[in-house]
Design a protein around this nucleic acid. Structure first.
Lengths: 345, 345
DNA sequence: CTGTTAGCGCTTTCAT
DNA sequence: ATGAAAGCGCTAACAG
């Protein structure tokens, strides 16, 4: 089943069939009609690869992410895909699994599939691999990890503003003993959030001494929080590098019989879907995936289809106040861990 | 940059380059070596589409899912992709968004991309669309929604056994007033779980009267649970059609000041990653995505590469006991909603 | 073992 | 407005 059979049935040339498929306006409505009927009748689906080969355009954008099971990404993927489909493009997804070796494989896949552009939404990127795209003149867009160049755009996340909003929020509630659970030091984005916390605290004239390290997973958040709870000076508020960490921390707090937010206020970062459904619902800083997806698509579309140069986009996270943060407990009513009542639930 | 340039640099024919790329054993190690150097030097990436066109094989499997933001799917996607890559295949993912119209688009995409096989992991499937694959002799595998045919396999989920395990578990804890929060009646898989619950209860000689309907989302679980809590005879245990529903139910229970599992036992279905991290951790019936992915891949691989006929696979969910289920409260200590103490947290 | 060459299915000039 | 035909980059007979 191919374009030739359609042409034969419609009694036109293959060129005319091709033109019809591509919506060319140089086809008489009548012949167009005839061709379309033939397509329907034969249930003909044009071969995408042959199209790409012939035209030199793949109509495919690559989307490289770290890990599809990380709740941050599915929404990004979905938004990106929706926009792409609206613009007649398709999306090729690739996971790096946080593994540089697999990143190489992903890049190779993109190159082999001759994508029209690549959105690299991981938080680490090897400069050497970027060159592969640049030398082939393939538009690229990074998530806060690249530099703007001819065909390269970058989406800058204003982590500082996001973390500052959280700091403002808890200090506004009267907290002064505020701890932070950071992400892995190997992740640039995690380091930036940590630094933003330190800066925010300093700006408030507070001590940012209590920083524990997690792994951006629930497990790390749990352990880090446990360490914080054992400290001589227990913080009254804890900010975390991402929501998964906060969820782990929440579990650790409950296990010691303390309550959120009555005893400890807790805030996350990202606003994954789950955060609205924890007990209590998590106050967090939303980093909109929908916005990121929109920007990423626009960057590539402008560059690849409209010949625009790479540019910089900025996304500003916003604070979402839910129930996990509250006023600092009055000294007298402050529960001690030892005195804590019922077991957690 | 193409195979010809590589051939020229290595001073061989394009056929030899092609053979080298494809790992043919009919190439002298020495020439192979020479070709490989040329490939490296030119940073040559073979064009996948041209390969597919020439060979007639795409090395691509399609994976159709309902919604990537539904926590059930990312793990399935990841497992499937991992296995596929290990076998030199790639994966094209498509979302239907639970929308029949988009399902049509997905099928069309698969057909246009000339996939070597399709795994349709949605819980609804239009028979008419299936024919499109059958008539093109493209292997297909369904998740509990198809019939085994020449090139069609089906993964049967033994929902009955899964639900029964949950019923056994709670009745074993002494519960007799057991309610069920079902999924949308439009979903076949939800209807089956509901029926399995009724059958399990009947088999235990218990009344399965308290069935509320949710929507397989957190919101529906919350509302359904609220209705259950308002009932004259409050159940002491609640089973749900999926984990999202259970999470919603958990929130509703906490809001009324009741405790899980002291006042009410709660169990989910699916075992999404999140379930281990709710407060308390959710007892649930695990439907292994990894197992489903493995079976789906095997079904397609056997059929498309080894000429095997379609067959039936069975996956049996297993109960995972965590902290959300416990012994039925003794009559005397049973908290009334009105008497419930502290606000939920 | 290696080269020659005819496709694969479609797009796109270039004629008409 | 339509058709003829030359590619696009690669694979796979077929020869040698």
């Amino acid at each position: 089943m191919n374009i030739r059979e359609v042409a034969r049935l419609a009694r036109v040339s293959t060129a005319t069939v091709s033109r019809t498929i591509n919506g060319s306006d140089k086809v008489t409505p009548k012949t167009k009609e005839r061709v379309q009927r033939a397509i329907e009748e034969l249930k003909f689906y044009p071969n995408t690869w042959a199209r790409a080969l012939g035209s030199g355009r793949s109509s495919l954008y690559g989307l490289i992410i770290s890990d599809i099971t990380n709740p941050f990404f599915p929404e990004l993927v979905k938004s990106f895909e929706d926009i792409a489909v609206q613009h007649g493009q398709e999306v090729l997804i690739a996971n790096t699994n946080y593994d540089p070796a697999r990143m190489e494989v992903c890049v190779s896949r993109m190159l082999q599939r001759k994508v029209d552009g690549v959105a690299i939404m991981t938080s680490e990127m090897d400069e050497r691999l970027v060159m592969e795209f640049e030398s082939r003149r393939i538009p690229v867009v990074f998530l806060d990890t690249g530099t703007v160049r001819d065909l390269a755009s970058n989406i800058v996340v204003d982590y500082g503003a996001g973390v500052m909003a959280a700091v403002e929020h808890v200090t506004g509630l009267g907290h002064t003993e505020i701890a932070f659970i950071a992400g892995p030091g190997t992740l640039r984005s995690a380091r930036i959030r940590r630094e933003a916390f330190v800066e925010g605290m300093t700006r408030k004239g507070l001590d940012a001494g209590q920083i524990e390290q997690g792994n951006h997973q629930v497990s790390g958040g749990h352990e880090a929080m446990a360490r914080l709870l054992r400290a001589k000076r227990r913080p009254t508020a804890v900010l975390t590098s991402n929501d998964m960490t906060a969820i782990g921390a929440l579990g650790a707090i409950h296990e010691t019989g303390l309550r959120v937010p009555e005893d400890i206020s807790l805030a996350g970062f990202d606003d994954i879907a789950l955060s609205a459904f924890t007990q209590p619902a998590l106050t967090t800083v939303r980093l909109s995936r929908e916005e990121i997806a929109r920007m990423a698509f626009r960057a590539m579309y402008n560059t690849s289809r409209e010949g625009a140069a790479g540019r910089e986009f900025t996304v500003r996270p916003v604070l979402v106040v839910r129930q996990s943060t509250g006023p600092v407990p009055a000294k007298g009513t402050r529960r001690l861990r030892e005195a804590a009542g019922a077991p957690a639930h």
